Computed example of a mutant assay.
Amino acid sequence: MFLEFINFFTQLDAGFSVLQYLTLRAILAMLMSLFITLALGGFFINKLQQLQIAQIIRDDGPQSHLSKAGTPTMGGILILFSFISSVLVWGNWHNIYLWIVVVTGLVFGAIGFADDYLKITKKSSNGLSARQKYLAQSFSAIAIAAWLIGNTQQPIPTDLLIPFSKDLTLPLGAIGLAIFSYFVIVGSSNAVNLTDGLDGLAIMPVVLILGALAIFAYISGNYSFSQYLHIPFMSATSEIFVVCAALIGAGLGFLWFNTYPAEVFMGDVGSLSLGAILAVIAIIVRQEILLFIMGGIFVAETLSVMIQVFWYKRTKTRIFLMAPLHHHYEKKGMSEPKIIVRFWMVTLILVLISLASIKIR
């Protein structure tokens, strides 16, 4: 009888040990965050409506957007809640990178929350001033970059990897990488924020890029794969595979409610945090340049605003009918769903090109 009792618990322990496998935890993390988002989505949207937390539409925006007035916003809270809940259940709490990503989401989510809150209370499309937002993002990015570079428990290489090249790297050093990381984090956060102007336009590219970064995290965390593919081996980055999976699940769940016509918008609380998380993950797996390539849509949207502002100040004329770029196509008469799907397709192509760099290396 005693031997049977011991045998039972031995088998039980063996069954639970299966849950330690990276790929299984990633799958379960994705499913959990997806189901949390789907299960709470309807309740969350109703609560936002009751609290009158609705999108404020710009007066100078496309006329078609006037019908979006009153749509609940700040849906990024649901994304972050589902993501963090799943990560805390299936992630390895001893992994420093997990906590860096989680804190990044919370900090930049707080900045976005403040911006959204001011827009709602002032009944204006203007929340935090550009100066206030930039200072908050800068202070947060500097702190996170210092945390990343100063981490001695699981340090990351300071060389910048050059895509599509086997051995070419650019040595940055600790200070150089910290400065570079600052620009990547702030730039990515603002780029996703600028892109989040149409239903589902930003969230699907984020999901696609996360999928690619998850692959890089898995490879760099596996000694055999990293050596074969000439990618720096960093065992701790394997946990980012689980982190990416959890955020992918939350993103897909949110897309269920955010797809055209959207029932809820992510708001700045979502776009600022997602952009910063993408940047931090790319820095951890040392694929910042590939993030620039995969996020070509985000880059194009940002450049369109910068070019428009620069050119208008010099000539008082506009290059684009309206910036960011997706509004330009709206002004030209292209339907919103067509713009969204085409931007998704471009992102998918850029992600596939970036993944091809693994084998080319």
Results as ranks from 00 to 15, higher is better:
residue 5 F to V: 15
residue 6 I to K: 07
residue 9 F to V: 12
residue 15 G to Y: 15
residue 21 Y to G: 06
residue 23 T to G: 02
residue 23 T to M: 13
residue 54 A to W: 05
residue 59 D to L: 04
residue 64 S to I: 08
residue 68 K to P: 03
residue 76 G to V: 12
residue 78 L to S: 09
residue 83 F to M: 11
residue 97 Y to E: 07
residue 100 I to T: 05
residue 103 V to A: 07
residue 106 L to G: 03
residue 108 F to M: 08
residue 113 F to I: 11
residue 123 K to M: 14
residue 124 S to N: 07
residue 127 G to T: 12
residue 132 Q to G: 12
residue 134 Y to S: 14
residue 139 F to N: 14
residue 139 F to T: 15
residue 144 I to R: 04
residue 144 I to C: 03
residue 150 G to Q: 09
residue 150 G to T: 10
residue 154 Q to V: 09
residue 157 P to W: 15
residue 165 S to G: 02
residue 166 K to R: 13
residue 177 L to H: 04
residue 191 A to Q: 03
residue 200 G to N: 11
residue 205 P to K: 10
residue 212 A to M: 13
residue 219 I to M: 14
residue 231 I to G: 01
residue 232 P to G: 02
residue 248 I to R: 00
residue 250 A to E: 04
residue 250 A to F: 01
residue 262 A to G: 08
residue 271 S to A: 10
residue 281 I to L: 05
residue 286 R to Y: 05
residue 294 M to V: 05
residue 317 T to W: 03
residue 318 R to E: 11
residue 321 L to I: 00
residue 322 M to K: 03
residue 327 H to T: 04
residue 329 Y to R: 06
residue 331 K to T: 04
residue 331 K to F: 06
residue 337 P to E: 13
residue 342 R to I: 09
residue 344 W to R: 13
residue 350 L to Y: 03
residue 353 I to Q: 00
